[in-house]
């Protein structure tokens, strides 16, 4: 049970980072930490004690395999995570060019 709780703790670490950091890039990194914790959770979920990677080998009929579905989900989620992270970084670079700072306290045009 402990690994699952560690995943959740990592998720909370990332959430803490998003809330408290003031640097745009550090916020992006914290989001990535949250993402990775979720992926770890998925990967742990599908693990079966003594299982092999899930590509069926006809030579060994009795072989135990790990659950392939969470792995497929994690792969899809990683691709999505790549897209979101790179878009976030592109926006951060653009923001840096406009404001000349990464500090979130100085980027406050929109209020109310």
């Amino acid at each position: 049970m402990i690994p699952y709780w560690m995943c959740f703790a990592l998720f909370l670490v990332g959430l803490y980072g998003v809330i408290t950091r003031r640097n745009l890039v550090k916020i992006a990194i914290s989001l990535s930490i949250m993402e990775v914790s979720t992926f770890l959770f998925f990967a742990l979920m599908g693990y079966i004690e003594g299982g092999k990677f899930p590509i069926v080998d006809p030579a060994e009929p009795g072989q135990l395999y790990v659950d392939p579905l969470p792995q497929a989900l994690v792969l899809t989620a990683i691709v999505i995570g790549l897209a979101t992270t790179s878009l976030l970084m592109a926006v951060i670079i653009r923001i840096y060019r406009k404001y000349k700072t990464f500090d979130i306290r100085e980027i406050r045009n929109l209020r109310g």
Partner: peptide, 27 residues
């Protein structure tokens, strides 16, 4: 422009957290 980028950043951070909550729930 300045406003658009700031709005998009805010939206992306909140939306990112939301997506991860959803993914965690699905898991």
């Amino acid at each position: 422009e300045k406003n658009e980028l700031e709005a998009s950043f805010k939206y992306q951070v909140l939306g990112g957290i939301a997506s991860l909550l959803i993914l965690f729930g699905i898991g």
